[in-house]
Each structure stands twice: as C-alpha cells, then as structure tokens.
Design a protein around this nucleic acid. Structure first.
Lengths: 106, 106
DNA sequence: TATGTAGGATACCAAAAGGTATCATGTCAA
DNA sequence: TTGACATGATACCTTTTGGTATCCTACATA
C-alpha cells in the first residue's frame, strides 16, 4: 500500500507527466500524439507514460498497432487518501474531492 | 505559479518527507526531534526539512536556539487545486453537486 | 509481399537527488 | 567565561532520474 502511494506521488512529481495528465483529461491519445506535444523524443515521452502507467494514473489499451493512453481516475485515490490524513488542517474542499473519487465505483 | 505547484509536488514525492509531514500533523517538532525518528543523519533530515519549507508545506519558527517545525496547511492548496483540475473526471454528478454547494455564498 | 509507420527496449550520458562527514555559528546554563 | 548543545552550511559520494541514440518488432496497407 505504501508502495502504491509512492508510485502515485512519484508519477505526479514531474511537470511533463502532470502536463500529460492534463492533456489526457481532454481526450485519449496515442503515444505519438502525446509525444508531438513536447520538445523531446518519443522514447522520453514513452518513459513518462510508463511511469504514469506504473502509478496507475493512466491505463493503456492496444488498438491495432497503436496504444491508446487514457486517464485512470481511480489511480488518484491513494494520493487523495494520503492527503486525507491531514483532515482538520484545512477546509472542506478536500473532502469534496475525496468523496467524489471514493464513490466513483461504488 | 507553476513553480509553486512543482515545489509542492516535489516536496511530497519523497517518502521520508511524507512521513515527516505525518509526524508534524501530530505535533510541532524541533529538527533534532524529527531526526531522532529516522535512521539517517540530522543533516539529511535537515535537507528534507529545507525542501518541505521551500514547498511551503511546513514553516519554521526559531525559538531560542531551537527551530520549531510545524505543518503549513495552506501549502497543500496548490496540490489540491491542481488535483481539482480532474474533478469532472471523477464523478460528474458529485462535481455538479459540489459546484452548487461551493457557489452557495457567491 | 514489401514498405512505411507505431511502438518496445536497451545502452549510454549528464544532472539532480539522497545521503554522509565535517566544520562553523549561535545560544543556553553553570 | 566556558562548555555543551541545537542548528547551519558545505564538500563529497552514490544512486536515481530525465533524456538521447539506436535498433528491433509488429502491424496496416499499397
């Protein structure tokens, strides 16, 4: 469980990866499509996608010879759960975020 | 602003730093007190505290020759705001409900 | 089939990160 | 004042990380 939290936070720690998540929140994309948005090689973007997938923040679905990368909302849960440890330190905004994700697949 | 988000997420990316935050959520602690909880040198812990302070997740107040480290709840705001970008993803119904509640007093 | 395109994988490199050792500074207390 | 203690700061080391270059595999299609 702690390893899950770590892989999630680690995935979120890089600005390129956070940008990828923002992009994927708009629409699903292939690796090439994601890579086209950055000034770095496809291989580098692929590594970021691997880390995001390992952190369960995205899932990857093969379609023909392509790979569709899509956001995986449940993967944010460990992060929100961890942040929930600080209940009482801030206002109700977190509670709203947290409950919305917790109830998603119930 | 993006730099603020980055320093927050970066500070949260290390398990030792997250453990420190959990400890400080229970009570304020000096550097030596924090360091006593870990199997590493005080200098290493101090580096972690510097990063947490830079990310505004803690604040540090001198008291005599000691330094009191305490949690800084507002520092989590950039993280929560960024995560809030995905609100619509997690559950549209709850998101609508949440928006209506949040706008109640506008 | 032949060819171009999407992706996988690995070796390699530079920079950043996490850690130690060490010494300097400031303050409490006798 | 003097000694002990809490902290600050820096040099140095090793591992991890983000990136490129390169080559390989798979699949769509002319």
């Amino acid at each position: 469980m702690n390893a899950v939290v770590q892989s999630s936070f680690r995935a979120l720690a890089d600005p390129t990866r956070r940008d990828i998540l923002i992009m994927l929140s708009d629409r699903d994309m292939t690796i090439a499509e994601v890579a086209a948005q950055f000034d770095m090689t496809r291989a580098a973007v692929k590594k970021h996608l691997n880390i995001l997938e390992h952190g369960a923040l995205i899932d990857v679905q093969p379609r023909g010879r392509e790979r569709i990368n899509r956001i995986h909302p449940e993967g944010f849960r460990p992060v929100l759960d961890w942040l929930g440890f600080f209940d009482g330190f801030w206002d109700d905004r977190l509670h709203a975020l947290k409950s919305s994700i917790e109830n998603k697949d119930t």
